[in-house]
Amino acid sequence: MKLNIEEKKILYAFGCENLENTIRRLKWITALTVDTKVKRRILCLARKLDSENVRE
């Protein structure tokens, strides 16, 4: 999976060792974010991590 610099920064700030918790945390942050561009980036990252290819 390819990540751009912004996605790596988001994962560095909000990610943890557990994939399930990271996805859940990103979705909560998406709900709390006001800026629509940032909200879209975080939600796209959460969806990318939630895809089937990452879980296997």
Rank of each mutant, 00 (worst) to 15 (best):
T33V: 15
N53F: 07
R55K: 12
I5A: 09
E7D: 13
R41T: 04
K39N: 13
S51V: 05
R41G: 04
T22K: 06
W28S: 08
V34E: 15
C16V: 11
Y12E: 06
R41I: 09
C16R: 08
T22N: 06
R25W: 00
K2Y: 14
Y12N: 07
Y12F: 10
E17A: 12
T33M: 09
V34I: 14
A31H: 04
N21V: 05
F14T: 06
A31V: 04
K8A: 05
K39T: 13
L11G: 06
R41M: 07
K48G: 02
E56S: 00
L32M: 10
K27W: 00
N18Q: 09
V38W: 14
K48P: 02
M1L: 12
R40M: 12
A31N: 05
K8R: 15
S51A: 12
V38D: 15
G15M: 05
L11P: 10
V34K: 15
K8V: 04
L45G: 07
E6N: 15
N21P: 04
R40H: 11
K8M: 09
L11V: 07
I42D: 03
I42H: 01
V54S: 02
L49W: 04
C44H: 10
A31Y: 02
E17I: 09
V38H: 14
T36V: 13
E17L: 11
S51Y: 05
A46V: 05
L32H: 06
S51F: 02
R47K: 10
N18C: 10
T22P: 11
L3Y: 15
R40Q: 15
V54C: 02
T30L: 01
K48H: 10
K9N: 08
T30I: 01
K48L: 12
I23K: 02
R41V: 05
L19Y: 00
I42V: 13
K8F: 01
I42K: 02
N18H: 01
R24A: 09
L19N: 08
T33F: 07
Y12S: 09
K37T: 13
R24V: 02
N53W: 07
L45A: 06
A31T: 03
